[in-house]
Design a protein around this nucleic acid. Structure first.
Lengths: 241, 241
DNA sequence: CGCACCGTTGATTAAACTCAACCTATGTGG
DNA sequence: CCACATAGGTTGAGTTTAATCAACGGTGCG
């Protein structure tokens, strides 16, 4: 029996913290040149292909990941394995810090949605930087607080809004978060099931509601991609507080 | 016409940070004696009576409150004024830091549920301490991360569990958070509507489910207070992941 | 080809909300 | 003191929303 082995080599440029565009991002902008050097020499960068599970809920954290490029989803596994997507992470985001900071098992799993170049920073280095540089700690605190604000909003949304409203909202959020291409199509493709797992509903409900929006000429569907053609009408589906 | 004016003076002992029991709490334990002194001399303590609204969603934050004693609820105002309770704060908790840190309007309103002695720390002092003492910043980061973990869990709960499960869970959470008195009755009294506003349901649903639990001999009701008499049966109402 | 995964549709069911009425306790003004 | 208003609690009936169940079509892949 013969096996054909296909080796696919995807190349990626190893990022250097010192001239990484992300150092201008909120988190790393306050690091000193020396600290950037420490970061650069201890970080471990790799390309993670679509579908890879980076880490799982309940697993012990070893550090944080800085997203140089790519898209990932953070989710919890709920009742009967149903996944609840907590949020998406993309270029410039840092994930895994919650678990690294408090030294508890991860509260979410992370899966690569689009090939990603990630820099891993171990907990020791993270803590060294946090202790040495309180501005850095404050910036990470900022990130955590922003996420917390979003989470609080989302609790209210899920608790009070209808499935239709939540889907309308998520479409707008995806648009603002991922942008649109030249044809105005939102730059992320999610399965119907994934959308359901964001807003906390059944796949069939998502299908029906997307199809409603389509027949009301509010959106256009291109497979997994969505184009919003009437943002105002879409917003009218959202009860504002 | 005569008016009878009743002046009620409630006394409270002004807390001194240096020997405040809370300094052993996670947040303040890393402050130096000097920093505790700064904290002590700039903080403003007051007694806030039940019913007082400390601050409102959307309002600009001026600092954080350290809870010396008392109970408060943090909530968002959602659709048609329906309140969504995000969480409760009690002795030893610090509230308002999210807004103070990121310099955005508050994302929740806060109301006093039980007379509270609160120490107000203005944003300047907070930032001074954060900058001077990275351990302090790390500890606040810890608090934010814990809250974030809880919020993520709650998103999954609300999205996936039934109202009955959520109520069962909240009763257990209230018990562990507030403890029970000598008769085993949970040390917090909430209206049916407030319970509804925690789990995101209608008041009537809470009434019906509590009454179900009562007739199944799982809980006993004493007005607004609840006694859990069969914790195992209550837990059976919660689907575990 | 056959399998797996995704998307779609229709029919049915179940969960929870809404509405309405009524009860009780508490507090208020006349 | 009574009359009344207010807020919280309760119950029942009817309706709505969304979940579930089932069947089926399309697509890509080994």
């Amino acid at each position: 029996m013969q096996q054909k082995i296909i080796v696919m080599i995807k190349n990626f440029e190893e990022p250097v913290c010192d001239n990484c565009a992300l150092k201008f991002n909120i988190l790393f902008k306050k690091l000193t040149p020396l600290q950037l050097e420490i970061l650069n020499s201890t970080k471990i960068c790799s390309l993670y292909e679509k579908g890879t599970v980076l880490y799982k809920e309940g697993g012990r954290s070893l550090g944080v990941y800085c997203i140089h490029s790519g898209v990932l989803k953070l989710y919890k596994t709920g009742i009967e394995g149903k996944e609840q997507i907590i949020h998406f992470a993309k270029t410039g985001d840092v994930i895994g810090y919650r678990s690294a900071i408090i030294g508890e098992p991860a509260c979410t799993s992370v899966k690569v949605l689009e090939d990603s170049v990630l820099c891993f920073i171990n907990t020791n280095t993270l803590y060294t930087l946090l202790r040495e540089n309180s501005e850095f700690a404050i910036d990470l605190l900022n990130i955590a607080c922003k996420e917390l604000g979003w989470a609080n909003n989302y609790i209210t949304d899920i608790a009070q809004k209808s499935v239709k409203e939540r889907i309308a909202e998520i479409l707008l959020k995806l648009k603002s978060e991922f942008g649109v291409d030249d044809d105005g199509i939102i730059n992320i493709g999610l399965t119907r099931e994934e959308i359901a797992n964001i807003v906390g509903t059944a796949t069939e409900s998502v299908i029906r509601i997307l199809s409603d929006f389509k027949s009301e000429k509010i959106i256009e569907l291109y497979g997994r991609k969505v184009k919003i053609i009437d943002e105002n009408k879409l917003k009218k589906n959202i009860t504002s507080y």
